[in-house]
Nucleic acid binder design. Structure first.
Lengths: 144, 144
DNA sequence: TAAACTTGTAATAATATTTGTTACAGGTGT
DNA sequence: ACACCTGTAACAAATATTATTACAAGTTTA
């Protein structure tokens, strides 16, 4: 199992809107860069919009950033596109046997430990902004 | 998406082998506590065995611990049951457009950031032993 | 106003993944 | 010989992910 690529696509979209800021970033344009279907892009953009990260309007071509990229962390994107539910990165087997000391306690014991690990992951994502991503792309472009 | 419950089942199995150390932990017994099919347990035990965490032999009933529980961290179990491939917790969309500056750099830019986050998660799992889990279960049992 | 374009969204399909089930070969001990 | 176990493969069922198609409704331009 792995975390949905909606997350990496979301980052891609935000970075490309920025780099294409003098142009119009339609779902078709973005889809051409991500290499997927425009409807997929529109769905993800809808999620980014719901989180207040981009501005889009029905009928009006193009998505714009709604915040400074330096204020958008990877964690914000991760939450926006909803790839992992809160406290549910790890799934725990259901209905262990209540007649067994391990069965009746395992969930309560394990879930907080999993939460700590999930938070460590999310904190790490919070340390990087999409601006950092854009800067890295620009740097890579200039070198090569 | 979420990480396979093989992980939580693996922890459950190890904890129960310990708590049942005076008895015989057959796959059927363990399956009864986890509440799943014995074949599922045997498969997971096979993985734990492959990682050197338990001892089992064909034909001989029962699994035994192969290491001190205090030396087995949740990270060891996590690796053993193979729920997440190395560096692949996050999936990244394939074949972005090489004719776009974002498309041709996004993977190289993002993958290392995802790795850092994954390592933060794994480090957190490494801070807890299965013995800690067992002790917590015992504590909960004594209180109630 | 009509035509050409867009976004938003739903329905559907294709694919992959996870979990459970069944079956049985082969080992062990009585 | 019998009863029991583990190891494993084949299969089925349930779920999740991604892509595709279609179209209503908004906007712009001519």
């Amino acid at each position: 199992m792995s975390i949905s690529s909606r997350f990496s696509v979301g980052i891609h979209i935000l970075a490309l809107i920025e780099i294409n800021k003098n142009g119009i970033s339609t779902s078709e344009f973005l889809a051409g860069s991500v290499n997927t279907n425009p409807a997929v892009i529109r769905k993800i953009i809808g999620m980014l919009k719901g989180a207040g990260l981009v501005k889009v309007q029905p009928g009006i071509a193009g998505a714009k950033l709604a915040m400074k990229l330096s204020d958008i962390t990877l964690f914000d994107v991760y939450k926006a596109v909803n790839v992992v539910q809160e406290k549910e990165l790890f799934s725990v087997h259901e209905n262990p046997n209540p007649d067994c000391p391990v069965g009746r306690n395992i969930q309560e014991t394990i879930v907080p430990l999993f939460e700590v690990a999930q938070i460590a992951l999310e904190k790490s994502l919070g340390n990087v902004s999409v601006e950092d991503v854009v800067n890295d792309i620009i740097k890579k472009e200039n070198i090569s």
